[in-house]
Amino acid sequence: MFVLKTNDLKRIFQELDKNGDGLLSAAELSWLLESIGGVHFSLQELESSLGKSCLNFDEFLLFYDSITKQGGGGNGEAVPADGQDQGCKEEDCDLVEAFKVYDSNGDGFISAEELQSMLSRLGLWDEMTGKDCRGMISKYDTNFDGVLDFEEFKKMMLHTSS
């Protein structure tokens, strides 16, 4: 998974903090994990794992850091578009996992609709900002098919996160 910047994480935190108390409850955190990664924990399991029932923003940053570092081992599934599933660099394995999250229909490509859906779930999509997912995709769509394959996604993520 690519690394989000602190400002993006702050926006996600504020979006998830529905009651505005400056804390994310285990329920709010559970919703995030289920929404973006399909990870299901009972509230008791999540609280036990966290060691508490809520996280402030600094704790949320530490939590995010810990889950992004854990995602890099690969899981034996095929890598989209390049067919390599073993011996990938940690960064590539992380990108494969991120690609799978964005490619919600599992067809091996990320469409403008899938990109907008994920940005919305992360709280990074605001229709008022005028962001155009088709335009974002076209910037990295080197074969002009209107979608991103894994290599195009990888170039986009490495450019974005650098």
Rank of each mutant, 00 (worst) to 15 (best):
145 D>L: 06
143 N>W: 04
139 K>P: 01
52 K>T: 13
83 G>W: 15
97 E>Y: 06
130 G>F: 13
134 R>G: 10
148 L>W: 00
58 D>R: 08
48 S>F: 14
134 R>Y: 07
44 Q>G: 15
140 Y>W: 12
97 E>D: 14
126 D>K: 15
61 L>H: 01
134 R>H: 15
89 K>W: 02
103 D>T: 02
49 S>P: 05
61 L>Y: 03
152 E>S: 13
128 M>Y: 11
81 A>Q: 09
73 G>Q: 11
125 W>Q: 07
94 D>K: 03
128 M>D: 14
82 D>I: 04
143 N>M: 15
47 E>I: 05
92 D>M: 12
139 K>A: 10
110 I>R: 01
85 D>I: 03
57 F>L: 04
42 S>V: 11
78 A>E: 15
116 Q>S: 10
103 D>K: 03
105 N>E: 09
117 S>Q: 12
87 G>K: 01
82 D>H: 14
48 S>Y: 12
62 L>S: 14
49 S>W: 14
143 N>V: 09
46 L>N: 05
96 V>H: 00
40 H>Y: 10
104 S>C: 07
151 E>R: 03
146 G>W: 05
127 E>M: 08
37 G>D: 04
135 G>W: 09
66 S>K: 10
67 I>S: 05
80 P>H: 04
107 D>H: 11
68 T>N: 04
145 D>M: 14
55 L>R: 02
51 G>T: 06
41 F>N: 01
44 Q>I: 05
66 S>I: 13
132 D>S: 12
105 N>C: 08
69 K>E: 08
48 S>V: 05
62 L>E: 11
51 G>V: 08
150 F>N: 00
123 G>E: 02
130 G>N: 10
38 G>D: 11
125 W>F: 11
151 E>W: 07
53 S>M: 13
60 F>K: 00
77 E>F: 05
130 G>V: 14
145 D>K: 13
120 S>L: 05
127 E>P: 04
59 E>V: 03
134 R>D: 02
84 Q>A: 09
132 D>F: 07
47 E>A: 07
58 D>V: 09
